Simulated scan of single mutants.
Amino acid sequence: MDNAEDFGFITGQKVNLVPLNSNHVDLYFKWNNDSRVRKYLGNVIPIPLEEIKKSIGNPKTNYVGFEVWHKADKKPIGYVHVDGINWMRRKASIGALIGEVEYWGKGLATEVTKLIVDYCFGELNLNKIASLIYEPNKASQKCVERVGFTLEATIGDAGYSGGVYFADLYYSYYRKDWDLKNQK
């Protein structure tokens, strides 16, 4: 997608969310297997390139994925997805990854999360969004809390890394709270 800087399925101030691009599968592979990135995903097993290619080429009715395109630098820096969409119960989970570590700490994940939340409630008409965050990932916890998520449950000793067990943190955001926030 050579003109992604001019196109955004969802447009933000610093980033656009554009369709996943099979030409960027090598980037997705790099991001998912980079030790600095995967430690916050709880990823202890390498994700093969073929698995990533297969997931991009096999769209599902309960999944929507986007590439995060940095507008000023005109390049992909991560991805975000809505997964496990239950159309009858109006709920889903979201996840985001800023794979280019030099873009961490710049507020981009917060912008991406806000954009995907607005999409989930405003366009997909969901009622509840969940985000499961690995306990060591303090930046993601702060990110979802800034956007409006609240901690709903802590699932103890759900992951293991570096000789230590960590919890999974289950955050949620409800449509009624999003509506209230957007009335102001």
Rank of each mutant, 00 (worst) to 15 (best):
M1F: 08
A4H: 05
E5Y: 06
D6I: 04
D6T: 03
L20T: 12
N21K: 07
V25K: 05
V25G: 02
D26W: 06
Y28E: 09
W31C: 11
N32Y: 04
D34N: 13
S35T: 12
S35C: 08
L41V: 07
V44N: 14
I45Q: 15
P46L: 06
L49H: 15
E51Q: 10
K53H: 07
I56R: 09
P59R: 09
Y63N: 13
Y63V: 14
V64G: 06
E67G: 14
H70I: 10
D73Y: 10
D73G: 03
K75D: 10
G78Q: 12
Y79E: 14
V82E: 09
G84W: 06
M88E: 15
R89Q: 11
R89G: 00
S93M: 13
S93N: 15
S93E: 14
I94S: 04
G95M: 09
G95P: 10
I98S: 05
E100N: 02
V101L: 05
V101W: 08
E102G: 02
K106Y: 00
K106D: 00
L108P: 03
L108N: 03
T110H: 01
T110F: 04
E111C: 04
V112Q: 05
K114T: 08
L126D: 01
N127G: 02
I129G: 05
A130T: 13
L132G: 08
L132K: 13
E135L: 00
P136N: 00
P136L: 00
N137A: 01
K138A: 11
S140L: 09
Q141W: 01
E145A: 03
R146K: 15
G148M: 08
A153W: 06
G156I: 03
G156E: 11
D157Q: 13
G159A: 13
V164K: 12
V164A: 00
L169M: 09
Y170T: 02
S172I: 06
Y174K: 10
K176M: 05
L180D: 10
L180H: 05
K181E: 10
N182A: 06
N182I: 05
Q183K: 14
K184Y: 11
